[in-house]
Simulated assay, not measured.
Amino acid sequence: MTEERLHHITDDQHRIGIHYWPAADNDSRGVLVWLHGMAEHGGRYGALAEHLNAQGWHLYCPDHRGHGLSISESCPKGHYGDNDGWQRVVDDACEVLAWAQARHPRLPCVLGGHSMGSFIALGAAEQAGESLAGLVLCGSDYNPAIYYRMMQLPIRMVRLKNGKRGTSGLLRKMTFGTWAKQVPEPATDFDWLSADPDQVQQYIDDDLCGFDCSTETWFQLSQGLRKVHSVAQLSELPETLPVLLVGGEADPMSHMGKGMMALESVMHAMEQPVEAHFWPEGRHEILNDCCRDEVHQVMAEWLQKRVTTA
């Protein structure tokens, strides 16, 4: 298995870095474009690539603006950009998706993402879902609009105080800090990510993980969440688009899995074809947790159905 590093220049001349793990040409069955979470990067998905490559799936993991290979002067670490950041990262996902489809025109293409990446993937699917064979949302969440409006109040305050590119200890305490406190007897501040101490240490040792995002990125994310989870936007998903939800019931970010279960209920109510799998001991990064082999297998089996029905 070999990782290649590619790039794509967007319509606004931003350079997106892309981690690519190709499947063998004579065994290609499909394409998965995977979007990483907040304060991490696409290069962390090699284990997923190894499993899916063996099943004939190409894996593309672009780095979002302000993350990994996509850090730049206009998008420094943790910063989507000074203006329209949410729409730009959603448009980036749509551009990479179209680019990957052009590279593999005869293969089914699935879009997926973890955590923040799942929200961006949902937004992209609402915008360009007709071209997709499926959508995978991992470690995701769902809350009513009032929740996001309340979230924006302290974000607006610290953005005004610290500037769009500034960071905030208050926002870290409200998010990463709050989630860390929900893990019994944590050894580190990041045990809420995984019950596997080796995986947690790899995250801590990675200079491109665990950093504070800008106040503007938090503001844009809160706006994006309110938008993609609205009934109006969820109605934009193609009615026959298959959706796979995977998450942990010990994930503090998703209210111990209740957020993903709420999303499943909403999608069922809207008659979206949805399949959900939750792991009782799984924390936030189930792809790097003790249940990861089971998660990989569930994803591979679900992706195989996208080949037979494409």
Rank of each mutant, 00 (worst) to 15 (best):
T2R: 06
R5S: 03
L6I: 14
L6A: 15
T10G: 13
D11R: 06
D11W: 14
H14C: 11
I18C: 11
H19N: 07
P22L: 12
P22Y: 10
A24M: 15
S28H: 14
R29Y: 15
G30W: 08
W34S: 01
G37M: 12
H41R: 02
H41S: 14
R44H: 09
Y45S: 04
L48H: 01
E50V: 05
L52W: 01
N53Q: 15
A54H: 05
G56E: 07
H58I: 02
L59H: 00
Y60D: 00
Y60P: 10
C61K: 02
P62H: 04
G68I: 06
L69F: 15
I71R: 05
S74N: 11
K77I: 15
G78A: 04
H79Y: 13
G81S: 06
G81A: 12
N83S: 03
N83T: 10
V89N: 00
D92M: 15
D92I: 05
A98V: 02
W99I: 08
A100M: 05
P105G: 02
R106Q: 12
C109Q: 03
V110E: 01
L111K: 03
G112C: 03
S115E: 09
G117T: 02
G117K: 00
S118L: 07
A121P: 14
G123L: 07
E126N: 13
E126D: 05
G129L: 05
G134W: 06
L137P: 04
L137R: 02
P144A: 14
A145M: 10
I146Y: 10
Y148G: 12
M150Y: 12
Q152W: 05
Q152E: 09
Q152N: 07
L153S: 06
L153T: 05
G163K: 15
R165P: 07
G166T: 15
S168R: 09
L170T: 01
L171Q: 10
K173T: 13
M174P: 00
G177Y: 07
W179M: 14
A180G: 09
K181M: 14
Q182K: 14
Q182R: 15
V183R: 03
V183D: 03
P184R: 15
P184I: 11
T188S: 06
D196S: 02
D196G: 02
D198Y: 11
Q201L: 13
I204W: 04
I204M: 11
D205A: 12
D206Y: 02
D207I: 13
G210W: 09
F211W: 07
D212F: 06
D212P: 13
S214H: 03
E216A: 05
T217M: 09
T217K: 03
T217C: 08
W218H: 02
Q223W: 11
L225G: 09
S230Q: 11
A232D: 11
L237K: 12
P242F: 03
L244G: 13
V246C: 10
E249P: 04
D251K: 00
P252W: 00
M253V: 12
M253C: 15
H255T: 13
G257Y: 04
L263P: 09
A269V: 08
E271Y: 12
A276G: 12
F278D: 08
E281K: 05
G282M: 03
E285P: 01
I286K: 00
C291V: 10
R292N: 02
D293F: 00
D293T: 01
V298T: 15
M299R: 03
E301K: 10
V307M: 05
T309I: 08
